[in-house]
Each structure stands twice: as structure tokens, then as C-alpha cells.
């Protein structure tokens, strides 16, 4: 489980997408990369300090391609925001690589309540613009642009 107070987990890119929001997420392994990419979405959506981790959301996904799995994973978080009114604070991801990469995610957060939470950007979509998942020397890096 992570709390997103560590800027090494992800970094917002200032002059990449002027109307949208771009960021890079990092991780020593795929699980951590996916978790950190999700934490960036959480931070963009609300002040996570104001969210109580009282409700659990679990889902599983699979995709042959790892980058598409990341895209689906982040899109799924937006789906839960809009269809189940959820904002999240913690995330735990387990990925099993294989012919079909399988992902299991456990997210903790709360039902959206503007009285309780400081809400920020209502992200509409994860885009494929510049979307990238890259294996680097010391782990993984992803570039994500979200449309708000």
C-alpha cells in the first residue's frame, strides 16, 4: 500500500500537454509502476489527505500487452469514479506476466462527498497520446496524458 507523498513515485510534466495533464510514473517493478501511475490519478482527482480509506474496490484485468494493461487499469479507475462515485487513497496491484498478462487490483477509498473531501480535477479519459510503458535500467517508467 502506498500513500502518495513521495514525488519519486510520479512527476507531473509541465509543458508537454497544455490543455491536458501529463505525468511520468516510476516503479522498480511492474506492480509498483502501476500503483504509482494510479496514485498520480488519485492526486489529480482529490486531496488524498481528505479521503478516508473505508471502502474497498477490487477488480481483475488481463491483456496481452503490458502497456495496454496499464491503459485499461487507469481507465478502470475513472470508470469507478463516474459509475460508482468513488475516489481512492490506496492501491495495491499484483501482476502476473504471461501470454496474457493478468492484473489484480485492490483500491481503498470512499464514496465521493464534496462536504468531506477536497475534490480537484474530474478526469475524463486516459489518452493514448504519448502513452508509453518502458523498461529501464532500474525498473519501469510510464508516460501518461489524461484529458480533463
Amino acid at each position: 500500500m502506498n500513500i502518495n507523498n513521495d514525488k519519486k513515485k510520479y512527476r507531473f510534466l509541465e509543458d508537454v500537454a497544455i490543455a491536458d495533464i501529463a505525468y511520468e510514473a516510476y516503479g522498480k517493478d511492474l506492480n509498483e509502476l502501476f500503483e504509482n501511475a494510479a496514485l498520480a490519478i488519485f492526486e489529480l482527482s482529490a486531496d488524498v489527505e481528505t479521503i478516508d480509506a473505508v471502502k474497498k474496490t477490487e477488480f481483475e484485468l488481463e491483456n496481452k500487452k503490458l502497456d495496454n494493461l496499464l491503459y485499461d487499469f487507469l481507465s478502470e479507475i475513472l470508470f469507478f469514479k463516474d459509475s460508482k462515485y468513488m475516489v481512492f487513497k490506496y492501491v495495491h496491484v499484483t501482476i502476473n506476466e504471461g501470454k496474457k498478462n493478468k492484473l489484480k487490483a485492490v483500491l481503498e477509498g470512499d464514496t465521493i462527498n464534496p462536504e468531506k473531501q477536497q475534490l480537484e480535477n474530474d478526469i475524463k479519459a486516459v489518452t493514448m497520446h504519448m502513452f508509453e510503458l518502458k523498461k529501464e535500467k532500474n525498473g519501469y517508467k510510464a508516460t501518461v496524458v489524461v484529458d480533463i
Partner: peptide, 15 residues
């Protein structure tokens, strides 16, 4: 459909 049905009559954020 599940995403949209709850959003009819909302302004959104951003610009």
C-alpha cells in the same frame, strides 16, 4: 452507458 447515465445534468471540471 454506466458512466454516462449518472452524468446527464452535470457540468464537469477543467475548462
Amino acid at each position: 452507458l454506466e458512466r454516462g447515465i449518472k452524468q446527464l445534468g452535470t457540468l464537469g471540471s477543467g475548462n
